[in-house]
Design a protein around this nucleic acid. Structure first.
Lengths: 326, 326
DNA sequence: GTGAAAGCGCTAACAC
DNA sequence: GTGTTAGCGCTTTCAC
């Protein structure tokens, strides 16, 4: 028994295939009673429109591609969920691709899925602007978590949230602070570093910059010794994962957080909320990041030119900061 | 400038469209020299085969669907990565769907993507067997993390790893142990509970069973009071996330792990490795789980009937267990 | 080894 | 409102 098509349904109901087609693609165009009959027999036959055929005819696949550098990094799952939820509303599916932190893979993978998606959402791309621009030529694309001239983007500005936390740290007596930088090629890393640096300059606080790091847990853990050596009483890690690493590394060195040193993360991923004590960090607006991205992508697909959207993170003071010691 | 097709290339090179087609789908069928020429001009034009057209002609989309109950649960990202990596090798893309913990959504979502995928991988399905069987009718499907009669599956048996940890706990003097059960509808929850229960029976250890829980962080945290009350000196949480919750909950109650109580998780997700102290748990073979699933799916698509695969978890003793106190 | 032609299942003008 | 008729771009017999 083969799959039902608009033809099989049409012949059973006694209408033309176009009417069946319309019943599914523009229901309002077919008279209610007829539509009902068609829908009924379609259900009986377990009919579902063949997406490939529809895609071939319309030039639209109904799927959007999402490229992330590392699904296992807890920053991305919430973003994926948000994008997916938003896509669902527009009746689109999500093709997910993981570039495994490789810029060259980004290029290759985009090339590969380009022909089968209506649009692309690229999260935290590592590819240099020029190549990025080059590779997405022809596919509507929006970048997330990276401001870039040639592409509409949705980014998160954590500056004021970081300042707020920094001020708090300052009040707690911290006068020498370490900053663990994120990946060289990551826009967020540069942006966050600048925020902390500017704040420190303004306040006249000594800032010890470490890194750049790939921003894995191990990087944070291994940086613990340098931190201790630096004499910084508080540290801004690039993200929550690194912060967790720092805490582990300090613990191995016999220190306890926040008793001996204060740690701040960024993004407020699951990890930050579930560790004990919970992590002081900046909450990223995942849901809005995702929905804005999808929304912008739709605009783009519709031929409009959305402007880059800038959202903000929110400071959340939790258990990993305390008074400066030493 | 429109996208290149086999026709545009054919007319430029001066061959028939079929030859161009073969160059891409069965390269060995066309003479080397000709093939090179075709490939060259294809490259010039930036040609890539239209997947929709190919799909329509062959009945294969080249995409496999993966359904997870919750992308944000750290158990799934490593699985997603593994599946994706394996799929890549077979030149297939991954359509990801998140059912957000709802069994009914599973049904609806599968229905929805069924027509556009060549096969389906369903991770930790919550749907009752019968409905699950019903809904995947017609699509090659493999279940992951759930043994089920009607579907080929790849599961992980943690029994011996859990016993190993339990024995260790016993040696440390623990004689009253709590077990936090996972979601009612989750196969893994039942399976793990049985393992611990049987062990406790054999050893004559008192087992306090709590739950079932949805297995979120908050569930573990909120269970802390009951645990303290139960007098159990050690606890097996359904998974790492719940274990993290328990630790947080105990901490709020003034207890410290492993000083006051020992905690064991399951799966060894990122969380388990990055918390301080790191969590004693059972490492799930994510990579094998994913690659087996894809492998079985290919078999299924090819018309063969793969047998259910059972892998094993590995005990990993870390920082959250210690001698029984009280 | 290569070409011609039919067809995959749907949509979209365009008629009626 | 509904039917007719071309395609959409590819694969695949079947000839040659």
């Amino acid at each position: 028994m083969k799959r039902a098509t608009i033809y099989s349904i049409a012949s059973i109901v006694g209408v033309s295939p176009s009417t069946v087609s319309r019943t599914f693609s523009r229901p309002e165009m077919v008279k209610v009673e007829l539509r009902e009959r068609i829908l009924a027999t379609a259900r009986e036959l377990g009919y579902a429109p063949n997406r490939a055929a529809r895609g071939l005819a319309t030039g639209r696949s109904g799927v959007i591609g999402m490229l992330v550098p590392d699904v296992e990094n807890p920053f991305f799952p919430p973003l994926i969920r948000a994008v997916q939820a938003a896509a669902r509303v527009e009746d689109a599916e999500l093709l997910l691709i993981d570039s495994e932190l490789s810029a060259s893979a980004e290029q290759e993978l985009v090339d590969r899925i380009r022909p089968q998606v209506d649009g692309l959402i690229i999260a935290s791309p590592r590819l240099p602007s020029k190549q990025l621009h080059e590779v997405v030529r022809g596919v509507p694309t929006v970048a997330v978590n990276r401001a870039i001239r040639s592409l509409p983007a949705v980014v998160c500005d954590n500056t004021s949230a970081l300042e707020e936390i920094a001020d708090h740290l300052h009040q707690l007596g911290h006068r020498r602070i370490a900053l663990l930088r994120g990946p060289q090629a990551a826009w967020a890393a540069t942006h966050r570093a600048r925020a902390v640096r500017n704040w420190a300059d303004d306040k006249g606080v000594e800032l010890v910059e470490l890194g750049p790091f790939e921003a894995q847990f191990a990087d944070g853990r291994d940086a613990a010794a340098q931190i201790v050596e630096s004499g910084a009483s508080a540290v801004f890690a690039f993200d929550d994962l690194m912060a967790a690493g720092v805490i582990a590394g300090l613990s191995a060195l016999g220190e306890s957080v926040p008793r001996d040193r204060s740690i701040v993360g960024c993004d407020d991923v699951l990890l930050a909320q579930t560790m004990t004590p919970s992590l002081t960090t900046v909450t990223a607006p995942f849901a809005e990041l995702g929905s804005s991205a999808v929304e912008m992508l739709s605009e783009l697909i519709a031929g409009r030119s959305p402007r880059t959207v800038t959202l903000s993170g929110t400071a959340v003071l939790r258990g990993t900061i305390g008074p400066a010691v030493g």
